[in-house]
Structures are given as structure tokens and as C-alpha cells.
């Protein structure tokens, strides 16, 4: 089993995700330079947080053209493995059309860094199966563009397919529609969320509950690989 963390110019949570996968979960993990296009040897690909290409145009709008990101649709289509976008990575995945919707500027237009309470809305996925349905947990957020948005028709579809796996449980910090904090694609292979599970994956940094997301993925992969 092998994981990759894509390093885009301006990624700044790449080492944090790497630390969780490699040091805490002892998963074989590589930092994948954004010019690489061969994703075939990886079972999990993480698009990390940061400010890819400075996010100067719109978060993720330029990053979607990075060769490694351009290689993701084929990887997903082939059901080769899982794709996880955290924060800026989530923004990149929506800009690339690999997850529905868009992430707009926070409702009060400011960058927000704080710990928020979240609820697991769907525990029946490779990314969430170690949680109980409805379970709440704390994770840090750190973003200026995290207000999830989509058309009513699309939202209805998301709800119907149970693609919304994570919501803001108490305060909605950014104005996301339906309190959405994390969603997945229909085939449950691509996951995106604004909060940072890698920042609460050790008890030294909080409850450590974020680790369960990564463990869920690893167990899911183990189930496939035996």
C-alpha cells in the first residue's frame, strides 16, 4: 500500500499530512511533485492544504491545471484508489470538477483559524467508517474561502446520495450552505473537507480524533489489498 501527498507550489500542509500518514500510521508515503503524472502506483492521493499558486485568482483555480491534478480524473475513473482533498485540496478538487460545488469567500470575508465542532453525517464510507453516525468531534479550520455553495438541485442530490459526510455541528463559521464541511463523490472514492483532520491526529494537539479519518482509509485499503 502506498500513499502520495501532492506538492503544489504553495502547498503548506503537505508535510503535516505526510507526518500523519508516514510517522503516525507507518504507511509508505511519498511527496509527489506537481509535475508528475503517473499516479498508478498509489492507493491514496492527498491534495494538501495551503495556497497553491498563491490562490491569487481564486483558490484552486490555477492548481487544477497542475499536471498531477490533471492526472486525477483518469485515476478516479479507473477506481485505482482514494483521493482526499483537505482545505486548499478540497478547493482544488471542486475547481477541477472532481467534487461538486464551489468554495466561496467566508461570509465575514476574513481568514478564520479556530477549532470547530463537526458532526459525522455519513459514517458509511471508506473515509468515515470508524466513526459512529452523528458522532461529533473537534477539528481546526484555517481558511478564508470555505463557504460551500451549490445549486438547490445539486444540494438535493448530495443529500439524497448521502454525499455530505461532515457538517458544522454548532457554529457555522463560514456561511456554508446546509452547514456543509465535507463531501464525497457518488462512488465514495473522492473526499473533500475544509477542516484539518491532520491537525488533530495526536492527543498532544487535541482529542486526536482526526486520526480516525486516516485510519478509516487505511483499513479500507487493507480490506481491498488483504
Amino acid at each position: 500500500m502506498k500513499a502520495a501527498v501532492i506538492v503544489l507550489p504553495g502547498s503548506n500542509c503537505d508535510m503535516d499530512a505526510y507526518h500523519v500518514l508516514k510517522d503516525l500510521l507507518q504507511l509508505e508515503t511519498e511527496l509527489l511533485w506537481h509535475r508528475e503524472t503517473d499516479l498508478s502506483k498509489f492507493d491514496l492521493i492527498v491534495v494538501p492544504g495551503g495556497f497553491a499558486y498563491g490562490d491569487y485568482l481564486r483558490a484552486g483555480a490555477i492548481a487544477r491545471f497542475a499536471p498531477a491534478v490533471q492526472a486525477l480524473p483518469d485515476y478516479i475513473e479507473a477506481k485505482r484508489g482514494f483521493v482526499l482533498g483537505i482545505c486548499n485540496g478540497f478547493q482544488v478538487l471542486t475547481e477541477a470538477g472532481l467534487l461538486p460545488g464551489a468554495l466561496a469567500r467566508n461570509i465575514d470575508r476574513k481568514f478564520i483559524c479556530k477549532s470547530v465542532t463537526l458532526r459525522i453525517e455519513n459514517a458509511d464510507s471508506p473515509f468515515t467508517h470508524l466513526f459512529k453516525p452523528g458522532e461529533t468531534l473537534e477539528l481546526p479550520i484555517a481558511h478564508a474561502e470555505g463557504r460551500y455553495f451549490d445549486t438547490p438541485a445539486q444540494l438535493e442530490k448530495l443529500e439524497k446520495n448521502k454525499q455530505i459526510f461532515l457538517t458544522y455541528a454548532e457554529e457555522n463559521p463560514n456561511g456554508s450552505v446546509n452547514n456543509i464541511a465535507g463531501i464525497m463523490n457518488e462512488s465514495k472514492t473522492v473526499f473533500g473537507l475544509m477542516p484539518h483532520p491532520e491537525r488533530n491526529s495526536e492527543t498532544l494537539l487535541g482529542s486526536g480524533a482526526g486520526l480516525k479519518f486516516f485510519q478509516s482509509l487505511v483499513y479500507s485499503l487493507e480490506a481491498v489489498h488483504g
Binding site: 503548506n12 500542509c13 508535510m15 503535516d16 507526518h19 492544504g49 476574513k110 481568514f111 478564520i112 483559524c113 479556530k114 481546526p140 484555517a142 484539518h196 491532520e198 491537525r199 491526529s201 495526536e202 494537539l205
Partner: peptide, 10 residues
């Protein structure tokens, strides 16, 4: 401090 990312680098 809420406008500053104080938890990056974990």
C-alpha cells in the same frame, strides 16, 4: 489571532 493560522505545521 483568529485571523492568523496558528496551527499549521502541527
Amino acid at each position: 489571532y483568529q485571523q492568523y493560522d496558528h496551527s499549521v505545521q502541527t
